[in-house]
Nucleic acid binder design. Structure first.
Lengths: 146, 146
DNA sequence: GAATAAATGAGAATTATTCTCATTTATTTT
DNA sequence: AAAATAAATGAGAATAATTCTCATTTATTC
């Protein structure tokens, strides 16, 4: 993953530094939403706290980091690389797990039509959208061990 | 609004106290998403900071407060009373304004169908959902004064 | 490889939120 | 309606999350 991380950085014209490589490697390895705390412990102090925040900010700036909050307002990040499937999130209130969910193409088309109406109605340019779903896993969630 | 606030509190079986009335009045008066900071200045120190957080928590517990975060992760709250229309949010990245948006009934029906599919697929019980839209207002936004 | 510019680490500063506890206020009991 | 009890509040301390500062290190350019 180190090579891929370097590639991503140089492709995006940001300097290739160790902390950036380490953070990218960690994010590439899990490839699913993770809190800053989790990311920090995954990095085992190999990157200073302040640097971690700076690197995450860099990744946001080059548009490969998606940042949002879980229902308890904890910040969560995930890598979104070019070509990755557009997806949404499902939150389990029992165990806190966050699951990537792809909605059907048909539905996304309809959502985009709906968004066009909203743009007109409110005189907005809408660049992005998010669908979040909240509930509880029943028997398949690893964390809950139900 | 004071009477209505008292009514809401007693209806929900929480004791009717001054701070709670004041917070409810403020939320009823604006009836649109507001940050904690904005709410605090609207209340002009008539309610202690710690109490404000406690009261907001109470309102969450009786299920009449919707809490979410704006794209910069600032916590935003809004009152959602019984009978209020289900709605979503549109965020302006220029001025930070948050606009309530109702999607068409037809679309909501389709979204609910889509959600049923997700429930099956992930063995989840989904209780709530949220659609967030991000963009820039063009010429009608008061804050931007474009 | 030297010079320049940018990034980092460590911890201080700031901000948001929660907690503590003595006091006040609301509710219940009489 | 007053006393007793329980709950809520205010003030500020404590904690947590994030940003900032600045001396040092590392990457990039020449």
């Amino acid at each position: 993953m180190e090579e891929k991380s370097k590639q991503i950085l140089s492709d995006n014209k940001v300097s290739v530094t160790n902390p950036r490589i380490l953070v990218l490697e960690a994010l590439l390895e899990i490839k699913s939403p993770i809190t800053i705390d989790e990311l920090q412990s995954k990095l085992k102090n190999k990157v200073a706290k302040s640097t971690l925040y700076r690197v995450l900010n860099d990744l946001k700036n080059i548009n490969i980091l998606n940042e949002f909050t879980s229902p308890d307002n904890t910040v969560v990040v995930e890598l979104v690389l070019e070509g990755d499937q557009h997806h949404h999130h499902l939150f389990c209130s029992d165990c806190g797990e966050i699951i990537d969910v792809e909605l059907s193409q048909n539905f996304e088309d309809l959502l985009n039509k709906e968004i066009k109406k909203i743009e007109k109605k409110f005189n907005f340019i809408i660049e992005d959208h998010r669908v979040e779903m909240f509930g509880q896993c029943t028997d398949q969630c690893e964390n809950c061990k139900k």
